[in-house]
């Protein structure tokens, strides 16, 4: 290389040597905490998931709304908008006290789904942008693998009214399905 490019190259690599680790470390440091998982217990639950638990609530996209209304009682569904670009179907949530399970009942093409536990929101600390954005104190339970039904262990946090389990699309940065523990099961989705 000629001298001016050599010094530019040197400056660029020095800059990279500083910025890349900063990006990497700060991204890792700000990850949501992950509760310890007990593999065997979870695997057993995984197998039982398709059996006899009672579906608690469902989430539907508008294109599936008519179908869903005829399938589920209309008043068990509250949905008010669309998730941009999502090709998801219905989500079936189940809860047995310590574990939360979910199953997609229509075909999905969104492999970027993460499951979070969200503690009850204090007054006024709902994330900017509304209910479809993830609260900062959300706890990552794990990633949803795809078409398979899956259970996640809940963190050792008090499960009380107002705490929720949410299905979050990493690619879209928004909650696509949400389920409240205790009280009436609800579905939340805000339109654009």
């Amino acid at each position: 290389m000629i001298a001016p490019l050599r010094s530019r190259h040197r400056r660029l690599t020095l800059l990279l040597a500083v910025t890349a680790p900063v990006v990497f470390v700060s991204a890792l440091a700000s990850r949501s905490p992950v509760p310890p998982m007990e593999g065997n217990e979870l695997a057993d639950l995984q197998n039982r998931l398709t059996a006899d638990a009672i579906p608690v609530t469902t989430y539907v996209l508008p294109e599936h709304l008519e179908f869903a209304r005829s399938w589920w009682p209309a008043d068990s569904i509250r949905t008010t908008g669309s998730g941009t670009g999502m090709g998801m179907g219905m989500v079936e949530w189940r809860w047995d006290g310590r574990f939360v399970g979910l199953r997609l009942t229509l075909s999905t093409s969104a492999p970027d789904l993460l499951v979070y536990f969200v503690p009850p929101a204090g007054t006024g600390d709902e994330p900017r942008g509304g209910a479809e954005l993830l609260a900062d104190d959300a706890v990552l339970l794990g990633s949803f693998d795809g078409v398979e039904a899956q259970f996640f262990e809940l963190p050792a946090l008090p499960v009380m009214d107002g705490s929720r389990a949410v299905l979050y699309s990493l690619a879209h940065g928004r909650i696509v399905s949400s389920w409240s523990f205790g009280g009436m099961a609800t579905v939340e989705s805000r339109g654009d």
Partner: peptide
Amino acid sequence: QFHALGDLNPLVSVFVSNPRVDSVAQ
């Protein structure tokens, strides 16, 4: 996979679907 199934142009959707520029984790 993530952006072609909505009513928004997928290329637009990539840039606008996640507004959380104020957050590191998201």
